[in-house]
């Protein structure tokens, strides 16, 4: 009789333990907003940045500045800066007021082919990252990439 009671207690304890493991370890709140924000942020940042008109560089867009920087470097802005310096300064300012302000770690790069990177802002992501790549169509193809870490 006592053994039966003990067996029932053990069965109940086992059931309770299974229940605890199932609900406490498996169930996690899904992060719909986080995935939406990171997906939207990387693509939005890169597209908007490249479309932006420069303030004192013959009304050239950031995309035009990148193209000039990667090819002839003939453009001289009203403040005397070349296209590369002007782009770097403007992009850095925008990234400082956005991703840096929200404590995101990121790496923004522009490269011709695989090796010659001519714009590199931020630091390399160590683990997980959300990447967005945009290819600027020109005589030589420029690959603009934004990695948002985490």
């Amino acid at each position: 009789m006592e053994i039966l009671g003990l067996a029932i207690v053990v069965v109940l304890l086992l059931l309770a333990a299974t229940f605890v493991i199932r609900f406490l370890l498996v169930k996690k709140s899904p992060e719909y907003r986080k995935s939406f924000v990171s997906a939207e942020l990387a693509s939005g940042m890169i597209n908007t940045l490249l479309k932006t008109t420069s303030q004192s560089c013959s009304k050239a867009s950031m995309k035009d500045l990148l193209q000039d920087c990667a090819t002839t470097q003939s453009l001289v802005c009203e403040n005397g800066q070349g296209s590369c310096d002007y782009f770097n300064e403007a992009a850095n300012g925008i990234l400082l007021q956005t991703l840096n302000k929200w404590n995101y770690k990121y790496q923004f790069t522009a490269a011709v082919g695989q090796e010659s990177t001519f714009v590199d802002i931020g630091s390399k992501c160590i683990s997980e990252k959300k990447s967005e790549t945009y290819v600027v169509p020109s005589a030589i193809s420029i690959e603009v990439k934004l990695d948002i870490c985490g």
Partner: peptide
């Protein structure tokens, strides 16, 4: 919840795009 979305702010008079949020 705070969501920030980057947008272009278009000035149709000057025909320029700014960077906004």
């Amino acid at each position: 919840f705070s969501t920030n979305v980057p947008v272009s702010i278009y000035d149709p008079v000057a025909r320029e795009y700014g960077f906004g949020l």
